[in-house]
């Protein structure tokens, strides 16, 4: 029965783009016809609703469900664009201890039996109770990081903790990549990050003004055909579904780009 995939989106460090990633992957998977449930496990600091533009529809939240004040179905908020995408919002007025790992597992089992093919869990930053809750029911993990020392170090810590929690083989999303900084060697490249963390690369998302815009509006960027980051998220969603999609190339076209590549020996 329980066939739905349960993927926790985590990072250790805050602010690397977990929530944006969760929202966009959920949206992209839903546009591909998947039945998707997003769980905001960041209790007390909920934001997934805001990124999805669903903040004014919350009547019940995850704590109401586990404390049996409502049924799970009542707390699920249907996306206004994609009826096959639902959000289980976090409580804003409680803290991480309001949900236990066991309750989380129960919730996930219920969602699976409701036929959700993908259940994505937006994990809070940190490695404490909130992290343990968010990872409790997951069977797969996606680690989001930025090409930046502190984010990579925290990601490494998370890999270790996930292993300890029997969540092996996490995959990696390198977010906020700024290709031109990589080109002029002021930012670590995806290869650098991958070399250090040594886990499977799931995707690369470029830093993109469109993301700020879409967050402001509550419209995930993966809905935008034109945005490069939206394309990146759609590609990641396809890879999650098992498709083989080549990674985006962030070429800086033109003479200078080619000259740079020639001089630095980058392909």
């Amino acid at each position: 029965m329980a066939t739905g995939r349960v993927i926790v989106v985590t990072s250790g460090k805050g602010g690397v783009g977990k929530t944006t990633t969760t929202a966009n992957l959920g949206m992209a998977l839903a546009t591909m016809g998947e039945k998707v449930a997003l769980i905001d496990a960041d209790i007390g600091l909920r934001n997934l609703d805001l990124i999805l533009g669903l903040e004014n529809r919350i009547v019940y939240d995850i704590v109401d469900v586990v404390e049996k004040r409502c049924k799970l179905r009542q707390a699920l908020i249907k996306d206004k664009r994609m009826p096959n995408l639902v959000l289980l919002p976090a409580a804003q007025t409680r803290d991480k201890s309001a949900v236990t790992p066991e309750q989380m597992k129960e919730l996930i089992a219920d969602l699976q039996s409701d036929g959700f093919g993908f259940i994505l869990i937006d994990c809070p930053a940190g490695i404490e109770q909130g992290f343990r809750n968010a990872t409790a029911g997951a069977t797969e993990a996606v680690i989001v990081t930025n090409p930046e020392v502190s984010a990579v170090r925290d990601a490494d810590r998370i890999v270790g903790l996930l292993e300890a929690a029997e969540l092996r083989n996490p995959s990696l999303i390198v977010n906020r990549l700024r290709p031109h900084l990589v080109k002029n060697e002021t930012m670590m490249s995806v290869e650098d990050v991958q070399e250090i963390l040594n886990i499977k690369l799931l995707g690369i998302v470029p830093d993109d003004e469109a993301i700020i815009n879409s967050s402001n509006r509550g419209e995930p960027v993966s809905l935008h055909e034109a945005a490069k980051s939206g394309q990146a998220y759609r590609n990641i969603a396809r890879r999650l579904r098992g498709e083989d999609v080549p990674f985006l190339q962030f070429d800086e076209g033109g003479l200078m780009g080619r000259l740079r590549r020639f001089l630095t020996g980058v392909r």
Partner: peptide, 28 residues
């Protein structure tokens, strides 16, 4: 910045980052 670095041959901050990370992760 790139030209400057290229000419002066000082270590790119990208490499500094990588090396520092490797060291600290070795400890971790």
């Amino acid at each position: 910045a790139f030209l400057d670095r290229f000419l002066s041959r000082s270590e790119a901050s990208r490499d500094t980052a990588k090396n520092r990370l490797k060291l600290v992760l070795m400890q971790d």
